[in-house]
Each structure stands twice: as C-alpha cells, then as structure tokens.
Simulated scan of single mutants.
Amino acid sequence: MVKGIAAPSDASLAGRAFRNNYLFVYSLQMRELSSTPCSSPAIATAGPYVYALYEHYGYSPAQIGQLFITGFGSSMVFGTFIGALADKAGRKKATLGYVVAYSLSCLTKHYPNFRVLMLGRVLGGVATSLLFSAFESWLVAEHFKRGFSEKSLGQTFSQAVFLGNGLMAILAGFLGDYLVEKMALGR
C-alpha cells in the first residue's frame, strides 16, 4: 500500500461490486429495450427500423401510427400504477415480469397480424413501465438494506443514465445501422 493512501474498505469494495452488477444488468436491459421504440432512448435508434418492418408487412402510415401510439399509450397507462404493483408483488418478481413482457413483445414482431402486433405494443408498454420502475425500486431498497451511503446511490443513478439511457441507445443505433445498411439484413 502506498503511504498516505488508505486501502479500500470491504464496504466500499462491496458497494462498487453491487453498483457494477446493477449497472451491467440495467445497461443490458436498456440495450435490449432499444429495439422496441416504447421508451425515450429507443425512439431515435430503433423506431425507423420498426416502422420499416411494419411497412414491409403492408401496413399504412395511419396503421403504423396506431401501433406506435398504442405502445406509448400503454406505457403511460401502466406506468401510473405499475410501480406500486411492483412494490406489492415484489421487486424481483416485477423485474422478471419485465423480462417476460419484453420477450413476448419481441416475439410478436415476427407475426404480420395487426392484432398480434398491437398486443406486442401493449406488452412493450408494460415492459417499459416495469423497467423504469421495478429496477430502480429494487436498487433503492437493496442499496439501503446493504447499508450503502445515499451519496453512492446518486452516483449509481447518474452512471445508469449515462450508460443505460445514453450510451446503450447510441450503440444500439450504430449496431442497427450496421446490420441493416452494411450487412443488408432485414431488407
């Protein structure tokens, strides 16, 4: 150890490990959500590709608009109470519910049936609401349960916004562009 520099405590090492695990999982989920334009980070990255998919299925701009509005509306409606429901049912169950709802939402994109796609948009809105409530709610509860400082919680949220909401959306955009434009996938 260098003279004058204290060794990190077990608590700070545990806190960093906890923060890094959360940021890794949260960023992965935000990256995945970037393929469903129900959330703000995904609008600019995946929206045009999903629009093109719906167009490829033969839907009119008005029908595609209905699909997009359904996704945003679903998130708005479910977002008003899903956080309280997550607290009641359990945060772990709510985060697993996100995985199920999001996975089903993704599966619906493989079916050109309008009703199936509409169901997928509703499920995408539910998933978005769960992502933006259950993960954060779990983080706060677990953070204080483990005795970590309030300051470090704020730092974790700051890093989550940068990594999960910002960087992942940008990387998803580059990846989507590369796959569609350079590799000619999805045409």
Results as ranks from 00 to 15, higher is better:
residue 1 M to N: 07
residue 3 K to F: 04
residue 6 A to W: 02
residue 10 D to T: 07
residue 12 S to N: 09
residue 17 A to H: 13
residue 19 R to K: 15
residue 22 Y to G: 07
residue 23 L to R: 05
residue 26 Y to R: 03
residue 26 Y to H: 05
residue 27 S to V: 06
residue 29 Q to L: 15
residue 30 M to D: 06
residue 38 C to N: 15
residue 40 S to T: 09
residue 40 S to K: 10
residue 42 A to D: 02
residue 44 A to V: 02
residue 45 T to W: 05
residue 50 V to T: 11
residue 58 G to N: 07
residue 69 I to H: 08
residue 69 I to G: 05
residue 78 F to R: 04
residue 79 G to R: 04
residue 81 F to A: 03
residue 88 K to P: 01
residue 92 K to V: 14
residue 93 K to E: 02
residue 100 V to Q: 01
residue 103 S to D: 04
residue 105 S to D: 07
residue 105 S to R: 11
residue 106 C to W: 08
residue 107 L to D: 02
residue 109 K to E: 09
residue 109 K to R: 12
residue 109 K to C: 11
residue 114 F to D: 09
residue 117 L to G: 04
residue 127 A to F: 02
residue 129 S to V: 08
residue 129 S to M: 07
residue 132 F to E: 06
residue 136 E to P: 11
residue 137 S to P: 02
residue 139 L to G: 11
residue 140 V to P: 00
residue 142 E to L: 06
residue 143 H to D: 03
residue 148 F to T: 03
residue 151 K to M: 10
residue 151 K to I: 07
residue 153 L to A: 05
residue 157 F to S: 13
residue 158 S to H: 13
residue 158 S to C: 14
residue 159 Q to Y: 15
residue 160 A to K: 00
residue 160 A to H: 08
residue 164 G to Y: 05
residue 169 A to C: 04
residue 170 I to E: 01
residue 174 F to G: 11
residue 177 D to F: 06
residue 180 V to I: 14
residue 181 E to Y: 10
